[in-house]
Design a protein around this nucleic acid. Structure first.
Lengths: 344, 344
DNA sequence: TACTTAATCTAAAACGTTTTCGGTACCTGG
DNA sequence: CCAGGTACCGAAAACGTTTTAGATTAAGTA
C-alpha cells in the first residue's frame, strides 16, 4: 500500500483555495497572483506533492511514455545492444520529461500484437522501432494507425515517408574494402546471414559498389551465409571456408559475432591473424577488444543514436513535421590488429 | 495524433447497452448474461477495443507498471547486464500483465530523486532495485515510504526485513578456492575493488572463510584493489602484481572484467595461462569466452533471476506477505582453460 | 455615481474506467 | 393474486487532473 500520496484536493483544502487555483498556480499561469503561486508552490513542496500521472494522462491524452517493443529471440541471445540502446533512450527522454516503457515480444510473431497493445492502450505517445526488417509489418501498422514513431534503421524501397536514423553501413563496408585492397588483398570472403534485414542489404550493397568502382577483375568475393542465430552453423561455415584450398585472404563480417567465430576457428586450425588472413567486423562489441589479436571493427555509437532518436520522436509527437526526419550517422573505424598486408 | 481509440462509451452506444454493462461483460462477471457477454466480446474484438490504461489506472490505483531505476555510471561503461536483466524483467512481468518502466539516473547522486519521482507520481506499483550498495539510501527511502520493492542483491547488516534475491557469490568463491587449492596453488591474488558493494563483501567473505577452513598456513592471499570504473588503474595494478617477484600463482577476480584485464596484461608480459598462472573470474560476460585461453568463471543467470524477481515483486504488491521473501541462487561454474595446476 | 476594465479566483465539465447499489422484469410457490 | 426469489442490467459516483467559461472583487474612468 504505502503512505498515501497527496493530491490537488488535499493541497487545496490545506490552503483553503480551490483545486482549480492550485492546478493553475502550479502550472504557472499568469492569472493567479504571484503571491498565491508562491504560497502554493511552497505548500506543494512541503507536502511532497507530485501530480498523479493517471489523472493528468486522462485529461491530456498523453502518457508521458515512449514505448520500445523488444523482441526476444532465442533462449540466450538477448540483443547485445539492448543495454546501450535503452540507456541512450532513457537519457534522451529525460530531457523531454518522458519515460521509457518496455514491452517484450516473446516470439517474433507476437511482436505486432504487443505493439498494437502498447499503441491502443494509450500507454505510449510514440514508439521506437529497432531492428527493422526489409519489409516490416510493424511499420505498416503504425503508418495505418497514424501513430508517431521513429525507426532505428531504414526500410528498403519505402514509398512512404519515414522518420529514421541509421548507421551508414554501406560507407563503412566500402571503406573496409578499400583499406584491405590497399593492403594487397584480392580474394575476399563475405561472412553474412540469410535473413532479410535492411542493415545487411546496405552493408553488402556498399561493399559491392566499392568493388565495382575499383574495377579490378582480380578481385573475387565469396559469400559465406548462415542463419542469423545459428551459432553452430556459423562455426561450421567458417571452418569450411578456412579449410578450402583457395581460401580468401580477407574476411569481411556482417557483424562482430561472425568475425569472432571465424577468428576462433582460425586459431583452432593453426592459422595466424593477421599473418595468414585478415578479418574485419562491425559493431565493436566488448569481446572484440579481448579476442586476440583484437578485432578491427566499426563502432556505431548506439547510445548516442538512441539519444538522437528520442529527440526525433519527440519532434514527431509534438509538431508532426511535413518533411520526414532522417539521419545517417557514420560509424567509426576501430583499428585493432586483425587486419594486415595480404600474405604473398 | 492518430485515429482515435475506441472507448467503452462508444462500444456501449454501438451495442445500445450501458457502459457499466459493457465493462462488466468484458470483465467476465457472472451477473451479465452469457449472451450479452459474447455479444460484447465480439463487438470489442471487432472495434479493436483496448481499455485505456489511464482510466483504469485512476480508478484502480494501480498503474500496471513496475519501475527500474538505472544508474548510468561512466561515459561508456554501460552496465553489461542491463540488457539481460531488463529482458528477464519484461519476460517475467508479461505473465502478470504488467510492464516495465525504465528511468535513468544520470549521476548516482540523482538516483534517489529519480526514484522518488517514480514512486510519488504513481507511475509504478513497485520497483526493482539492482546493484544495491552496502548501505543504500534508496532502500531506506522505500521502506519509509512503505512502497513495494525487491532488490537484486542483499544488504549488509540489515536490521529490517527485505525482499531480495541474490547470487551466492560466497559459495562460488569458496568453491573456486578449493578447486585451485586442490590444483596445488598456495599463493593467491584477489583482484578486487574498493567500492562498498555487497556483492564484494559476500564474495570476499566466502573466500576468506574457505581459506580459514582449510587451515593451511602456507596459503597466502594478497589483495589487489582498484577503483571500480578506473580501467587504466586496473591495468596498472595487474601489471604491477604480475611483475612482482613473488607473484601469486592463482588469481581470483571479483568479476570478469578484472580477470580479462589481467589476462591481457599477462599476455603482454609473455606469461602463459594456465601454465604460469591461473585466473578465475565471475559473471561469464561474453568476452570471457573469446579471450584466450577462455576464462574459467561463474555464470549467474541474470535473466532468470530477473524473472524470479518480478514474481517476488508481484507477490509483494498484491498480498504483502508477513515473512520477507528471500532467494539465494547458486551461480554455475563455467570451466574454461584459464585454470590449471600450479607451476612447480 | 455608474460604468468599464483588470485582476484574481472558482465551479463544473471532461477524460475512461470500475464498482456499488439498486432497479426492472420474470418466474416460482403459496 | 401476492410475496419472495432470481437473473439481468443501468445510474451514478469515484479516481486526480486540466481547462473552459464564468464569477467576484477591486480599481480606474467618465
Amino acid at each position: 500500500m504505502g503512505a498515501q500520496r497527496s493530491t490537488l484536493k488535499q493541497l487545496a483544502a490545506e490552503l483553503d483555495i480551490s483545486v482549480a487555483t492550485v492546478s493553475r498556480a502550479l502550472g504557472g499561469y499568469e492569472d493567479i497572483s504571484k503571491k498565491t503561486r508562491e504560497r502554493v508552490a511552497l505548500k506543494a513542496q512541503e507536502m511532497g506533492y507530485v501530480p498523479n500521472s493517471a489523472g493528468r494522462m486522462l485529461v491530456s491524452g498523453r502518457s508521458g511514455f515512449v514505448g520500445l517493443v523488444v523482441p526476444i529471440r532465442g533462449p540466450n541471445l538477448v540483443d547485445s545492444f539492448l543495454g546501450e540502446f535503452v540507456t541512450g533512450l532513457c537519457e534522451g527522454l529525460k530531457g523531454h520529461g518522458s519515460d521509457l516503457f518496455l514491452a517484450t515480444a516473446l516470439e517474433s510473431q507476437s511482436e505486432l500484437s504487443v505493439l498494437s497493445h502498447v499503441v491502443e492502450s494509450g500507454r505510449a505517445d510514440g514508439v521506437v522501432l529497432n531492428r527493422v526488417a526489409e519489409k516490416d509489418e510493424r511499420v505498416e501498422y503504425l503508418l495505418k494507425r497514424k501513430f508517431p514513431f521513429v525507426t532505428h534503421g531504414r526500410l528498403l524501397n519505402a514509398d512512404y515517408d519515414l522518420n529514421w536514423l541509421d548507421t551508414d553501413g554501406g560507407a563503412a563496408f566500402a571503406e573496409m574494402f578499400d583499406m584491405l585492397y590497399d593492403l594487397g588483398h584480392r580474394k575476399f570472403g563475405l561472412l553474412t546471414i540469410s535473413d532479410p534485414m535492411t542493415f545487411r542489404h546496405y552493408r553488402e550493397a556498399g561493399l559491392r559498389q566499392a568493388i565495382e568502382k575499383k574495377g579490378d577483375p582480380e578481385v573475387t568475393l565469396t559469400e559465406i551465409k548462415t542463419e542469423r542465430f545459428d551459432t553452430e552453423g556459423m562455426r561450421r561455415a567458417c571452418r569450411n571456408s578456412l579449410s578450402a584450398t583457395d581460401r580468401p585472404t580477407a574476411y569481411i563480417a556482417l557483424f562482430d559475432e561472425i568475425a569472432l567465430t571465424l577468428m576462433k576457428e582460425a586459431a583452432n586450425l593453426g592459422l595466424s591473424i593477421p599473418r595468414d588472413l585478415s578479418v574485419v567486423g562491425f559493431d565493436n562489441v566488448a569481446a572484440s577488444a579481448y579476442a586476440p589479436p583484437g578485432l578491427t571493427t566499426y563502432d556505431q555509437d548506439i547510445r548516442g543514436s538512441a539519444k538522437q532518436l528520442t529527440d526525433m520522436l519527440m519532434q514527431v509527437i509534438v509538431d508532426q513535421p511535413e518533411e520526414p526526419l532522417t539521419r545517417l550517422v557514420k560509424p567509426k573505424l576501430i583499428r585493432r590488429a586483425s587486419h594486415g598486408p595480404a600474405p604473398s
